[in-house]
Amino acid sequence: MAEKEKDELEKMNEALSMSEQFVEKYQKPLLWGLVVVVVVIGAILSVRHFYLLPRQDKAQAAMYQAVMAFENDSIDLAINGNEKFDGLLTIVDQYGSTDAGNLANAYLGLAYYEKGEYETAQKYLSKFSADESILAPAMMSAIGNCLVDMEKYDESVKYFEKAAKASDNPVFSPIYLKKAAAVYEKLGNKEAALKLYQEIKDKYPTSNDARGIERYIERAQNK
Rank of each mutant, 00 (worst) to 15 (best):
L52V: 11
V39E: 06
S167T: 10
Y26M: 08
N72W: 04
Y216A: 00
Y124Q: 06
L53K: 15
T98S: 08
S207R: 13
Q122A: 09
G109C: 12
M150K: 10
P174G: 05
A111E: 03
A61W: 13
P137N: 11
L53T: 15
A193K: 07
L88A: 00
K190H: 09
L52A: 11
W32G: 00
Y113S: 08
A210D: 05
D149F: 14
L9F: 06
A181F: 05
Y113L: 13
W32A: 14
Y112A: 02
K203V: 09
S97V: 14
K84E: 08
G33L: 01
R211M: 04
Y113K: 05
I134V: 12
E20Q: 15
V92W: 07
D149L: 15
E218C: 04
L108E: 05
N169D: 00
V47A: 04
M63A: 02
E114V: 15
N80Y: 03
D209Y: 14
Y176F: 11
K84D: 15
D202H: 01
K127N: 13
E10S: 10
S74V: 04
D76R: 15
S97W: 03
A210Q: 01
A121Y: 02
D7G: 00
S207I: 09
D168C: 10
A220Y: 02
A104V: 08
Y159N: 03
Q21R: 14
E8L: 13
N72T: 11
L53F: 13
K178S: 03
Y216T: 02
A164F: 05
A62F: 01
V36Y: 01
V67P: 07
A192H: 01
K158R: 15
E71M: 00
Y118D: 01
K115E: 14
H49F: 11
Y112F: 07
A69T: 10
L89Y: 05
A69G: 01
M1Q: 10
R55V: 07
L125S: 06
K4G: 11
G116P: 10
K115Y: 12
L9A: 09
A111T: 02
L53H: 13
A220P: 02
A69Y: 12
K165V: 13
E155C: 08
Y107F: 13
R219A: 01
